[in-house]
Amino acid sequence: MESPGIVLGFYLLAGLTLGSGGLVFLARNLLHSLAFLVISFLSMAGLFLTLSADFIAMAQILIYAGSISVLMVFAVMLTPLASRDNSNSIYVFPALISAGGIASFVAFIAWDTDWSGPGTDFDSTIGTIGQLLLGKYVLAFEIASVLLLFALVGAIMLVHQRDEDSEGTS
């Protein structure tokens, strides 16, 4: 953790994550905020790399920046008549207050506690993760795969346009 590259990288990536996250909130156009969201995801993947979590960083890029954002693009494109502006609702002020509370609470806890753990650099994470997933957590892994299958089928079922339906709604 003494290496200057890590320190510099941490501050750069944290600033990028938080800055583009803030711009997601501030941007006036929904697609602009989507672009900032992707930048935020990518710099978050960089933060994972500084924590020597290479597998999770790649999964983050693949799933968040590569897939979920594309899903959002499809959602925006499939709702052509809906407004594209990114306006706030009336709940934004209570949300701001509660979020400030959350952030300051977490920051206070993080600052006040003595985290004296030495920190370990993992040489290789992917093998151990694989063994854990197919060993200790195999049941959860199977349930997660079933969940994904259900999500896949469910999403198709929800959006699928039946012929008799489309006449009534369109």
Partner: peptide
């Protein structure tokens, strides 16, 4: 890197959004 194959797949999925932004 250890996760080279994943890296390749992840990197190749990044171009999609740029293409969409260009078109939109």
């Amino acid at each position: 890197m250890d996760v080279g194959v994943l890296f390749v797949i992840a990197i190749s999925s990044l171009g999609v959004l740029a293409v969409f932004v260009a078109g939109w």
